[in-house]
């Protein structure tokens, strides 16, 4: 529904607001109904993780799908969000909700600083810069042991909102699901805003966009900052949900996992981000019966998707179905 390849853009633009959000409405209904089928809190946890990672994936998808830029350090922003809700209440007596906002603001600021000089350049400079940025952050989290607990990580205090202590897997499922739907709706709106149209123009041709009067560097920077905030929010949720955080939240492999979620689900597809996150969060759980071959099969599935569903799961299947219908 929310795919945007060059030939389909006009159709997308003609779609009314309500229809634009119908995919998200479907997701919302599923999120409400599916817990009825959960036999235990384990399933709530897995589903909550899917939504949390999907939030980060949407953010990255905005950057990759609409601005055509790759970030290989997005887990670094998750790390900022995660450690904000851990360090704020623990060391500085800042309430969790405020630490959460500070983390998001800090991520935005860091994205601004990192992105500003780099996004003026063309090509994969951002990918390389974010790669370094992610690694640097992981090193900081390991070495600043006084604040972060070092490689063994630190406890994250339970958030308290209006005197109510947020705890329990089911509570977190609802928080993650509602936040995801909200984040997805926001992203869908953004895509159909002037900023979104400008971004798609950049994605198709930077030169053409510039000729049309689009401030390419500025628009890229805006979307990079927005995507960093999405990742930071996801990181904060993950930390508060798990109650414990280690530097691996911002590790390089986590960044790659986020990119994989976006690519597998479908670049430029918001529903795809959810499917990609679901695939990468659930597959390791489903494949445990394979024991030693688990990693190998996981790799095969990812390769298979990339070979047979080249545009990503959601856009490929959507295209196949619409071809059949036509």
């Amino acid at each position: 529904m929310l795919r945007h390849t060059a030939d389909r853009i006009p159709a997308v633009l003609r779609r009314p607001f309500v229809q634009r959000l119908s995919a998200i409405a479907v997701i919302a209904v599923i999120a409400i109904v599916i817990p009825a089928f959960f036999p235990s809190t384990y399933y709530y946890r897995v589903a909550a993780l899917v939504f949390v990672f999907a939030i980060a994936a949407i953010g990255l998808n905005l950057l990759m799908g609409f601005a055509g830029q790759v970030s290989l350090g997005h887990a670094g922003f998750m790390g900022i969000g995660a450690y904000a809700v851990a360090i704020g209440p623990t060391h500085f007596n800042i309430p969790s909700w405020l630490s959460f906002l500070i983390g998001a603001a800090l991520s935005a600021f860091v994205a601004f600083i990192v992105g500003r000089p780099i996004l003026r350049l063309k090509g994969h400079y951002l990918a390389v810069a974010t790669l370094g940025f992610g690694l640097l952050l992981a090193i900081v989290f390991v070495n600043e042991a006084r604040l972060t607990g070092g490689p063994d990580g630190m406890l994250v205090p339970r958030p308290v909102l209006f005197g109510w202590s947020v705890r329990g897997t089911e509570t977190w499922y609802w928080i993650a699901a509602i936040s995801f739907v909200f984040g997805a709706a926001l992203a869908a709106n953004l895509i159909d805003s002037p900023t979104g149209r400008a971004l798609r123009a950049i994605h198709d041709s930077e030169v053409a966009a510039r000729v049309l009067g689009v401030d390419v560097a500025k628009q890229k920077l805006v979307i990079f900052i927005i995507s960093a905030v999405y990742a930071s929010v996801a990181g904060s949720y993950l930390a508060a949900f798990n109650g414990h955080i280690t530097p691996d939240v911002s590790g390089f492999l986590r960044s790659i996992e986020l990119v994989a979620m976006v690519v597998l689900g479908g670049i430029g597809s918001i529903a795809g981000s959810l499917v990609g996150a679901a695939l990468l969060v659930m597959l390791p759980q489903v494949l445990t019966f394979l024991h030693d071959y688990e990693q190998m099969v996981l790799g095969l599935v990812v390769m298979g998707v990339m070979i047979f569903l080249r545009a990503g799961i959601v856009p490929s299947i959507a295209a196949a179905l619409s071809r059949r219908r036509a």
Binding site: A23, I34, F37, V275, A278, L279, M282, V286
Partner: peptide, 21 residues
């Protein structure tokens, strides 16, 4: 509409998890 099928597919993957234990 496709997304609906996708959701169903995703849900059935999820359901596959149930068949453990």
């Amino acid at each position: 509409m496709m997304q609906k099928y996708m959701k169903i597919a995703a849900a059935s993957i999820f359901a596959a998890c149930l068949a453990v234990g």
